[in-house]
């Protein structure tokens, strides 16, 4: 994964509260391998009717939303199931950032692990941006170093909050497994300590 500090792209409004991960990707699509691509499943049952016909009024289906990479939405985005496929669907559709007043904690961690920014702004800032974008999608700029977002071309800057560790990961494109394996000696010592002090932590063969 490559890190990033600035992004400029088309932003689209999804003026709905509580988009849970079951909406982001219905469970029935999750048995597919990642390589198959998850973009078509994003918000599937909101974007398409039972016959698979796209709803022309749904924000992501409008022609002017094509190529959007920033999603602005309302509170509690990505709550519910821990399914990382919800992030795969957003990323494969082309999103690099979601801007909202709050996110499900597991979703936010999954997003960062896939290079997708969950930018938490105040409810007032979200409403201001939604009002602009509901008129028409517009280009926005994201500055991951300053933790701010703005409509491109001199729009008002809005600060966002993001856990420091998450910000560092996005900026550096860090991979956690590589990072943790550098601590192998400390982990080995920790494990040996547990085996000595709390050997009962390792369950037996299930014989009671």
């Amino acid at each position: 994964m490559t890190g990033w500090t600035h992004h400029r792209g088309k932003a689209v409004a999804l003026p709905v509260e509580g988009i849970d991960t079951d909406q982001l990707i219905p469970a029935r699509f999750m048995s597919r391998p990642r390589a198959a691509g998850y973009g078509d499943f994003l918000l599937h049952d909101l974007r398409f009717d039972a016959d698979g016909t796209p709803d022309p009024d749904f924000p992501l289906n409008r022609p002017e939303a094509a190529g959007a990479s920033i999603l602005v939405t309302r509170r509690n985005f990505g709550g519910g199931s821990s399914r990382e496929a919800a992030v795969y669907a957003l990323a494969d559709f082309g999103f690099r950032a979601v801007i909202a007043p709050s996110f499900g904690d597991i979703f936010a961690a999954n997003a960062v692990n896939n290079g997708l920014l969950p930018a938490r702004v105040t409810p007032a800032a979200a409403e201001t941006l939604l009002e602009i974008l509901e008129r028409a999608p517009a280009r926005m700029e994201i500055d991951l170093e300053a933790c701010s977002v703005a409509v491109a071309g001199g729009g008002e800057e809005h600060a966002f909050t993001l856990d420091d560790a998450m910000r560092e990961k996005l900026v550096n494109g860090w991979d956690d497994i590589d990072l943790t394996r550098r601590h192998a000696p400390a982990l080995d010592a920790w494990r040996r300590g547990l085996k000595t002090d709390r050997a009962w932590l390792w369950p037996g063969g299930g014989t009671g």
Partner: peptide, 23 residues
């Protein structure tokens, strides 16, 4: 006890640890 995503599951499988910010 807490739920984790697939990237974290892979991390736990590989290292038996998980990175978490303290709630």
């Amino acid at each position: 006890g807490f739920g984790i995503g697939a990237t974290e599951v892979a991390h736990v499988l590989a290292t038996q640890t998980v990175w978490q910010s303290r709630p």
